[in-house]
């Protein structure tokens, strides 16, 4: 059984559809990256998954339970860190630790202490006195001390410096190397995603557009540069075309599974040379989510 499963999850805020029938499974021991532009529905999906938000239709299941009726026992096995997460501002670090220990039976005090020490988080300091980066690290240390089976991170490193982000990556690597636990994370930092993600999903305006292993996505999407004598023609109708633009005598096409079809089509239009170019995740993401020149 997959630790996380969305089934036809749809959510509206008033008249605005934030998520459109999202169906997605996160396999066990997988580092799963949820990507999308601002407002694509990532946080909505994560909030539904943790039962913070009741979906309009469909279900989200986590550790075998319907997220809408998550028993406390299951909640204790889930770690959650969100961007700009609110921690009680007047509490001291050690008070928060004590509070967390009382809330989660699986809380590992020694592990928490070692994380705090490594991060150099002063135990006597109050939350409001901590920097943004320190607060994010504190939230992470508390979540990890639960020894969660599933760790859900909602863009926790957003706006944080490279050192803190690296800390989050190291933690994810440790979690996977040690115990094969499942991580679902959303992020805007695609270079980080490329380092740690096994699978990626791309949401675009509430619709799931990609859900595949990272290597497979990179293998199947190529950007083709077709060179013409004189002005390049209109882009040909192509299956899997994500994006097309013309630069004088060059036609640039980003295509899914275009191997074997793009080159002959461009040659028919008079292209002299057609060169495929593999894409990094960042370019790929832009071509998937920017306004398109054709249907995918």
């Amino acid at each position: 059984m997959n630790p996380i499963a969305f089934e036809r999850l749809t959510h509206y805020y008033g008249d605005t559809k934030a998520l459109d029938s999202l169906t997605l499974d996160v396999p066990a021991a997988c580092v799963f990256a949820l990507l999308g532009r601002n407002g694509a529905g990532k946080t909505t999906a994560i909030k539904c998954l943790l039962g913070f938000l009741a979906p309009t239709r469909g279900t989200a299941r986590i550790l075998g339970h319907d997220a809408a009726a998550l028993p406390p026992e299951a909640r204790g096995r889930i770690g959650y860190v969100a961007e700009g997460q609110r921690l009680v501002p007047w509490m001291r670090v050690r008070e928060l630790v004590a509070y967390q220990r009382a809330s989660f039976p699986s809380f590992d005090g020694a592990l928490c202490a070692s994380h705090l020490k490594r991060l150099g988080l002063p135990e006597k300091r109050r939350v409001f006195q901590l920097s943004r980066g320190m607060r994010a690290q504190l939230a992470l240390a508390l979540a990890l001390a639960q020894r969660p089976e599933v760790l859900v991170l909602d863009d926790p490193a957003m706006g944080l410096d490279a050192v803190v982000r690296r800390e989050f990556l190291d933690v994810m690597i440790d979690l996977i190397a040690d115990e094969g636990r499942t991580v679902l994370f959303s992020s805007h930092i695609l270079t980080d995603v490329e380092r740690v993600a096994d699978r990626v999903a791309i949401l675009d305006k509430g619709v799931l557009r990609v859900n595949a292993p990272l290597d497979e996505v990179k293998r199947r999407v190529r950007r083709y540069h077709a060179h013409f004598v004189g002005e390049a023609p209109e882009p040909p109708p192509l299956k899997g075309l994500l994006r097309a633009h013309r630069r004088r005598s060059e036609l640039v096409l980003t295509v899914v599974d275009g191997e074997g079809s793009v080159e002959p089509l461009c040659r028919e239009l008079g292209a002299r040379a057609v060169e495929p170019e593999p894409l990094g995740l960042e370019d790929l993401f832009v071509d998937f989510t920017a306004e398109r020149g054709g249907a995918a």
Partner: peptide, 15 residues
Amino acid sequence: SVRDLAKELVINPNT
């Protein structure tokens, strides 16, 4: 080891 290399390169151990 897979673990050491993963940590050194900051890359998913599964990779």
